[in-house]
Write a protein that binds this DNA or RNA. Structure first.
Lengths: 216, 216
DNA sequence: AGTCCTTGTGAAGTTTTCTTCACAGGACGG
DNA sequence: CCGTCCTGTGAAGAAAACTTCACAAGGACT
């Protein structure tokens, strides 16, 4: 069952939210302040956090990155009565995942909650196994170069790839291509051209992000 | 010099923006549509992209993830005359980095541009480590868990770490800690507490970024 | 002093990954 | 038809990564 942390200083709203969520078969825990929430996060884990922005003590905006650090996986949904474009942008830049404006209809909130839980679930599924695959794919220099090449060129023939990589022994390249194929990063078009799969593109994107950030 | 791509279907605004940016010692290139922009991104690279949302052809919102894919490291700033909280949230969820409302004062725009370029630069500076080292550090599941743990907890004693990882044989953990230490990702405080180094934090950030990008 | 727990080291052994080599079928030009 | 290049497979060996084991110094507690 999904666990939700409700952070709001307004006791009435807090308990209402908890009740509503529990009616929907979700496990909800109330927290009356950001510090209370952070404290609770140290002990238990949550899938989703409903966070009020305006609170006494540590305010919600400040709390977002702190929460994010304690619970990197959790979806953070900001709730606020003082909504503005600037404020919404800032919230998301701080690391929130969604933003809803008070007062809201219960239905609207539940939709948002469900949507975010679904995204979280999708993330979990892709998680452990895929991560290993990605890192295995990216663990080798030759494979990284291959992904980058294919990402840039789109499609390539085997020997062109070998020459672009400047490897004498083509079977060595073959070995790594096989590894990439088995990891689901590349496949071959009917005419034998190698190309990235969707997952491969994803991995290449990860890679290029890291690479670029490493170049001074 | 920083390179900026200005994507707007309004010719007048487009040229004005390019002029203003060039006056500020930035290299600006105009694009009249999302497709034009994507095409240009295939050939040249940009540090920052000013993107109008409402355009004929592929609209800006749709273009965001496509641009993001071509230029994972570029800062994307959305400009729109039809601003709303919902629209801003959606833009950022799609992968934009910032959002400004038309009409804007040139000063305000420049501030936003400068701020985003600075963030981009900061990102670049933060990673000076070696790619192989990062991937070696992240190649192993146990090491990834360790980095994440330390990133969340700050400092940990050896045996607490071992127990948190649920590994029976403490020497196994020791082996990987040594690897992480030699890779420069972790070190030990005088009282033997393990903690992330600056590079380790970078690696952990990379890791969590990758996790995140798997959700997208 | 004796007994645990913590925090290690180093070597031996195992597993995984990578490289190299030997070979082979198909395409294609001459 | 012959040689050559493309595209591949599979096995054997080398190298790297990982695990396990044996052991030990230093605290802490009794």
């Amino acid at each position: 069952m999904n666990r939700i942390l409700v952070v709001d200083d307004d006791q009435e709203l807090r308990t209402t939210l908890v009740e509503v969520l529990e009616q929907e078969d979700l496990q909800a825990v109330p927290a009356q302040s950001a510090d209370d929430a952070l404290h609770r996060l140290q002990q238990e884990s949550f899938d989703l956090i409903l966070l009020d922005l305006v609170m006494p003590g540590t305010d919600g905006m400040t709390a977002i990155p702190l929460i994010r650090r304690q619970a990197p996986r959790a979806r953070i949904i900001v709730m606020t009565a003082y909504a503005s474009v600037t404020n919404a942008v800032q919230s998301l830049q701080q690391g929130a995942d969604d933003y809803i404006v008070k007062p809201f209809k219960i239905d609207g909130l539940m939709l948002t909650v469900r949507l975010n839980l679904q995204k979280a679930r999708f993330c979990e599924e892709t998680d452990a196994a895929d991560l290993d695959k990605i890192f295995n794919g990216l663990a080798n220099g030759l494979r990284r170069q291959t992904l980058q090449l294919l990402s840039r060129q789109g499609q390539m023939r085997f020997m062109d790839l070998v020459r672009a990589l400047e490897i004498e022994d083509h079977t060595k390249v073959n070995f790594h291509l096989k590894a990439l194929r088995e990891a689901g990063f590349i496949d071959q078009s009917p005419d034998k051209l190698y190309q990235l799969t969707t997952n491969g593109q994803r991995a290449a994107t990860c890679l290029s992000y890291i690479c670029k950030s490493l170049q001074a």
